[in-house]
Every structure is written in structure tokens, then in C-alpha cells.
Write a protein that binds this DNA or RNA. Sequence first.
DNA 1: CGAATAGCTGTTATCGTTACCAATCACGTG
DNA 2: CACGTGATTGGTAACGATAACAGCTATTCG
Lengths: 335, 335
Amino acid sequence: METPARRPTLRDVARRAGVSTMTVSRVLNGGENVRPALRRKVESAAAELDYRRNENARSIRPGQRSRLVGVIITNISNPYYAWVMSGIEGVIGRSGRRILVGISHSDVELEKELVRDMIGRQIEGLIVVPSDSGGAHLSPARLGIPVAIASRPLAGIEADTVMVDDVGGAFEGIKHVLDAGRRRVAFVGAGESVSTSVRRLAGYRLAHERAGVPVFDELIRRDANDVASAETAVRQLLALPEPPDAYFTATNRIAVGALRALQPVAGEDPPPLVSFDDFDLAGLMSYPLVIVDHDAPALGRTAAQMLLRRMDDPEPGPYVQVTLPSAVKRVTLKG
Amino acid sequence: METPARRPTLRDVARRAGVSTMTVSRVLNGGENVRPALRRKVESAAAELDYRRNENARSIRPGQRSRLVGVIITNISNPYYAWVMSGIEGVIGRSGRRILVGISHSDVELEKELVRDMIGRQIEGLIVVPSDSGGAHLSPARLGIPVAIASRPLAGIEADTVMVDDVGGAFEGIKHVLDAGRRRVAFVGAGESVSTSVRRLAGYRLAHERAGVPVFDELIRRDANDVASAETAVRQLLALPEPPDAYFTATNRIAVGALRALQPVAGEDPPPLVSFDDFDLAGLMSYPLVIVDHDAPALGRTAAQMLLRRMDDPEPGPYVQVTLPSAVKRVTLKG
DNA sequence: CGAATAGCTGTTATCGTTACCAATCACGTG
DNA sequence: CACGTGATTGGTAACGATAACAGCTATTCG
């Protein structure tokens, strides 16, 4: 019967090198004030044992940082959030820290539990794409660590926040089709609880108002959350007595669903689609599109940078709210 | 000047409830053998202080599991790996464990460093999409914890492995276009170091051999790693004196690049594209496509399940190698 | 040559938690 | 009423690492 094969500890390295644990600890933390001969002995002993410091044990000492950052996003299978994640990872990874990920699946209770668990694991900071617009459980004051909020603003929470210019992007996209003479533009997005969708709808209304074009309630669908529900919603819009002459979709997933409904019935002059968020093959679609683009990795990068700043600087000043630009990027309207 | 506001500890809860730390610990671990009155007192004290157990401190005690799993993937911004991640997260999250992620960017040295760091953080198990086909540093025997390898086999490593049937899927896809009478099918993929690409090329060769169709070296491009390089490679193939009459792309990213080159010059009877991996809008493309599909989340789920089994069962038996099916899913060839 | 100094190394205590054991208490039994 | 039994509770000692201090050894300088 073998022993369970525990990993070697500082003590094991010390024994092997014939020194005290403190000397080993000093060598491993930069080797200041250790004779080169001893240092080499310790280093080779550590290498032979394949020793790795137990970071958890280390982090229980006061004043030691865990070099761990928590990241909570709502959905990892959506490429958009994967990009955000990618931006976060680039910055956090380069700072020598590791990432603890949690997927909230847009469930506030799960999000709370994830936060609590991560706090228990001594994260130094937290980046969250919140599940909901309310979130006292995300307050940095309450958690005792810096927090960066990405993608949507949080009511009543004092924390660094980075968002996309949803209103401006939607405004510009809608203006494009209104300028092209369209007068019945459908809005397909999510409901009250998804604040990006709320702000994109605000941009939609603003563009109509400025252009003096009336908004028709029957053209506003707020029940599209994913590809399938978007496809259904657009099918129903198509079946209206007086169907839309253009479509605005609040996310790229919704755009994909909408295209599935629109493309097969596209006739001579199909109603153009304005999509918030770019998607891979947008440039190759034969369907007329207006793409409102923004930089998802930059969202992640910015959130990570804001967090690092606050983690490293004891007096980083007041909370910041950054809005990243979004703008019409590509237009494939014919004629 | 405020104190640095450390989180409350077990001791603080004990003091507030007027009991010993052991009693608090017992309550927090299930509350066996504690009088209900005391238990309630402890619970309310913990709630008032918003106490959260320090999991790191807990995990240094022998026999305590960290409930932490490491996941290392090569690239998070590729939707394919995001799906794999999604499958992993579903299974691991439901088991009450958290995920420590690392992105290796296909850099073996970085991968090694990530593994070492994660070991230092006391992960219970590790799931890896390896950067390279060699990897002694990933051996579970060496690391002392279970390891699951996803996506590509590792030479000489004893570990649970889950892969996709690359040879069979490529074979079927190629067979499709050969049966349709194509005789100059280009292969666009990555080089020797990417083992999925190697195996997909094997399937490509096998299909030709079985059909008695010669393979032309000039049609085989092994320098495509991403969208941009794939686009370039296909442009060059198009410029050949005798260009291909069909294309096989080894990944969905490469397919996107290929389409960017092919679609703009598509004439009457464009060379069909066989893509390994599905992509969102494949069904809506006007270009003739053959999609070889496989289930990326299932890859992640399977890896996670294999890992959990080995983590929970002290005698899980010999290492397993699972191959998930891949098959032609959708065909939009005209005629 | 003696003493002050600087550099190196070990000892001890501690971080937050839990395993182990001892102590206490209520209760029923002979 | 003495005793055993079982449940409840607390004390103590780790787990692995490091901060603070103490002790030791060379080196330098007057």
C-alpha cells in the first residue's frame, strides 16, 4: 500500500538541503541575504523534489496577497463574453495573477453564491458582468476588495464601471436606416432586466424622435433572449398585417436568429437588419446589414486595468465610469 | 485612519456567539452534535458579520479538499474552446467546485508555468487542452493529481483522454465531395504541431486512397492557423494554374478565412467547401458547404466527468480514451 | 587587537481552520 | 444512588508558510 503521495513541503526541501525552513522561504522569495552556496543548494533541492510553494498556506498570513482575481460572467458559450474574457485574461495574466471563473447563467442567486465562495478563497479583486441591474452584494465596500463592473451599470453601487455606448451605437444604427427612408423599424431585444437591451432601446427611441418618425409599439419585441426566441419573434413580426421594413437586433445572437427567419423569405428588396455587435461572417452575408461594432476585448481589458489600479494603489481616488465607443462599422445595404 | 478592514474570522464569530471556535466550525460543517439553541446563535452571529470561511486556510489541513479544479486551454477567444469551457463548467460547477482557468496561448513554457502555479494552489484535478503533443509535465503520476486531456492525444502520457473522431469526420466530409465528382480537393490546415490537424489530414488522405483518387501535394496547405493566414493560403490556391475544385478546412476559423477568399470570386459553379466544425451562420451562407459537425460542449463535459470520477473514486481503474463521433451534419451543395 | 557593524541563519509565534482528545452534563438503569 | 452511556463543548496541536526577532559569523576600523 503506497502512501497518498502528498506534495513536498518547505520542510522537505529544508531537510534535503540541510537548512532551516526560513532559509528556504527566503530563497524562494528572491534570495536576498542568503549565501550563494546555500542558495544553490536550496534551489537544487527544490528542483529535485519538484517543490511548489503552497499558495493557500502562504495566503493565510496577514499581508500576503493571494494573487487571485475572481471573474464572474453570465455566459461563456456566447462568443461575445468569450472575447471579454480574453481581454481580461490578457491583462490579469500579465500581472502574474490567476483567474477564478464563475458562470452565473444570469441567475442572481447563483451569482451571490459565487461571490461568497470567491471571497472565501481570498480573491484580491473581482470583475463582474452582473446578472441584474441591482446588486448590493457586489459593493466593494461590503466585500472589502476592489470590484470592477463590466458591460452594464449597477444601480446604487459605488464601483469602477466600464460600459459600451449602447445609446449612441443604437442611435447611429437606426439613423442609418431611417435616413435610407425606412419608416417601420422593428426592435428585437430582451426585457427590462437586461440593461444593455434597455439602453439600446433608448437609442432606438431617440433616433426616431430626432428624425420625427413615430414608434409603433407592435414593432417592439422584448422577449428575445437567444437565437431561438429571436427567430420566433421575427417570424411573428413578418406575419403582421403591415410587417416591418427594417429590423434592429440588440445582440449578435439575436441577429443570428433574426437572419434565420429573414433570409429564407428575402425577396427583391428585403428589410435591412441593423445588428448591435459584429459577428464573424457578417461581411459575407448576402443579406443587407448594418453592423454596429464595439470592442469586446477592450471591455475586458479596461475592466481588468481598472481593477489592477485599485488593487495596487491604496489611494486610487474616486470611482470611475468609462464608456467605450460603439459605432456603425460596416454597411452592406445595396444601392 | 481606518484599519485595513480584514474579513471576520471564525474567532470573531465565536466571540460574538459566546462559544468556542470549534463549535462554530462544527455548525458550519453541517451542525452535527450541536444543540439547536447554540447552532442558531452561531448562525445568526455568522450572518451578522457576513462571515465566510477562509477556504485557503481550511485546505491546508491534511485530508481537506480544495474543491478547486484547474482548466488550461489554448485560446479563449476561439468560440470552439469557449464551448468546450462551457461544457466543463457545467459539470464542474454542479459538483460544487470552482474553476481556476489558465490560457496557454499554445505556448508550452507558459503551460508548464500555469500547471506549476495551479499545483501550488492545491487544485484537486486538472483538465488540459495541451499546447503540444509532448507533455511529460502533464503526467498525473508526476503531478500527484488526476488529469484529463481534451481534444488531442498526448504521446507517452498515462491519463484519461477525450478526443473527437478527426480521421472519421474528415474522411466522411472528403468522401462527400469526391462522390460528387471533385478531383482536386485542397487541404487547408495547420502544421505538424497541431495534432487535430494532423489527424484530419490523415482522414483526407484515407478518403482519397479508398476512392482511388490521387492526392496533389501542391493542394495541401499546412500553414493556416487563423482567419487571416487561411484567407491568404486560399488566395494562393486560387491563383494556381489549375486551382482546386473543392476545399477542406481543418477548423471553423480556417473555414471563415477561406470563405472570405472564396465567396467574392464565386462564379457559376463555385468549388464547395468542406468545413470541420460547425459555425453559427453556416446554414445561411449562399456558398456551397459541407459541414462536419461534432459536439464541443460534450468534449468538455466528458473530460470533466472523467476527471470527477477519478477524483472521487480512489480506485477508478485503468486510464480511458474516449473518441467522440464526428459526422457530416449539413450539406448545402446545390444540384 | 578589541569593538562595532553588516550579513547570514535559525527559533518562535502566528495566520484561520479542523482533527483529536478530554471534560462536562443529562439521563436512564440496576 | 452509583454508574455507564451518549451527546455536547472546549482545549490543544497541528497544517504550510513567513514576520519578527535573536544569535552567530566575518569584516572593518580606530
